[in-house]
Nucleic acid binder design. Structure first.
Lengths: 230, 230
DNA sequence: TGAATAGTGTCTTTCAGACAATATGCC
DNA sequence: GGCATATTGTCTGAAAGACACTATTCA
């Protein structure tokens, strides 16, 4: 029987048992030249003391995206960051307590915004390199794997990197973001040629001096929304 | 409060009000040289007599994908077709009855499998060209738009077209699939050069005679799973 | 032999990738 | 001057795109 079919559906809509629905957040940042995600330590059964990606229930009056924004704010204090729905995971046995369907989101946090809430209600939260992750609760390893693939492929054909950098940055920093996420070295000359030809970077005209060497020109993304190319 | 935090969460999990969760299906096929989707006519409030994409509730003991497969089978009688999760739509007011979160799936049906169930429990079901769609119930126009974009971009860098063709087909048929979905003409010589160089087509050695003209070689996809290239 | 579709090759341009030397600022 | 990072150009190979004629079958 489908929503569309039953002639008595308006009386039946509430008769089915309903699953719980949560949002889970894959929060990425670049820290110490590594791609990292935020994990929280679970305090209770199931998976007590295991690390997990943060998440929580979707309230009846908020959209999925707003639920994700609220959770993100609760965990990190940040607002206005890149947020994208990743995938919905709904195996019947993914949570031993009850049926829980989770809508996973990706969030990208730049190095300037990156701070953890002092007064978090989470017992412990930590940035883990995606190359050295602990065992994760539930099906969260699957979610991380899926999110990494999404991030990597979007990096190759969109300006998504803007979410991981502060407003102004050096081209070498941008290249580092690509190298860290794609996990391979990139030729500097080819990278600059390509990235500048795409036309989504503007030179600020400013140079940044940061040590005993030639200062670098600062650039910024000319769009703070995702754009695909090719 | 998140799943991870509350020390009394195991007693609280059931205290929240829960949304209904459905799967909705965007079922594509090629018919009369047009890309079409299956729509069903609603029999009851809300959107009575409006067209909608088929869908139904997720049962407590089935995965999202199995719910989609079950609905697909109920509507079309087919099994073993290409099925992909599209996106999850969860605006609080998208269904006037109650909070309904829907996980949308794409299904591709080839011209040989394409038959509608005689004994469908739906009042009416029909294949509509995506270029001439009626007004749709709920937020289904948004879902269709989203699905079309997904299908178009996957067509350009994967072998997803296998889902829309029978096992054996002529290159001109494959080209027609591309032209119809991308909605633009493609040069025959460039298309053949490119598609054959990708290596996911095998020649069957058979030729198909279908009228007063030179017979065409038949090809088949050498993988019945999605593969990305480039 | 006419109608209809199948099948094929060249040229040009664009883009990706390999590759190394000079420039600038601070100490 | 030494160190550290910034900045720049050429060559080659691969792929994309423009473009038109011949082949085969049946009626």
């Amino acid at each position: 029987m489908t929503i569309q079919n039953s002639s008595s559906e308006k009386y039946n809509l509430e008769k089915y048992e309903k699953p719980s629905v949560t949002v889970d957040l894959l929060i990425f940042t670049i820290l110490d030249s590594e791609l990292r995600i935020l994990l929280v330590k679970r305090a209770a059964w199931p998976y007590e003391n295991s690390w997990a990606i943060p998440g929580g229930f979707v309230r009846m009056d908020e959209s999925l995206e707003n639920a994700a924004k609220r959770e993100l704010h609760e965990e990190t204090g940040v607002t206005d960051v890149y947020l994208e729905q990743l995938y919905t995971f709904g195996e019947p046995d993914r949570d031993p307590r009850t049926r829980v369907i989770t809508v996973a989101y990706i969030a990208l946090i730049d190095s300037e915004s990156r701070t953890l809430r002092a007064s978090s209600d989470v017992s412990e939260a930590q940035w883990f390199s995606v190359k050295k992750l602990p065992a994760l609760a539930f099906d969260h390893s699957t979610i991380v794997e899926y999110g990494l693939n999404r991030l990597r492929s979007k990096l190759e054909y969109s300006n998504i990197a803007y979410g991981l950098l502060p407003t102004e940055f050096r081209l070498s920093e941008l290249q580092r973001v690509y190298e860290v996420i794609l996990d391979r070295p990139i030729d500097k000359r080819n990278f600059r040629k390509k990235i500048l030809s795409l036309g989504f970077l503007d030179s600020t005209g400013e140079k940044e001096i940061s040590g005993a060497h030639r200062p670098a020109m600062l650039y910024r993304f000319n769009k703070k929304e995702i754009v695909f190319f090719e």
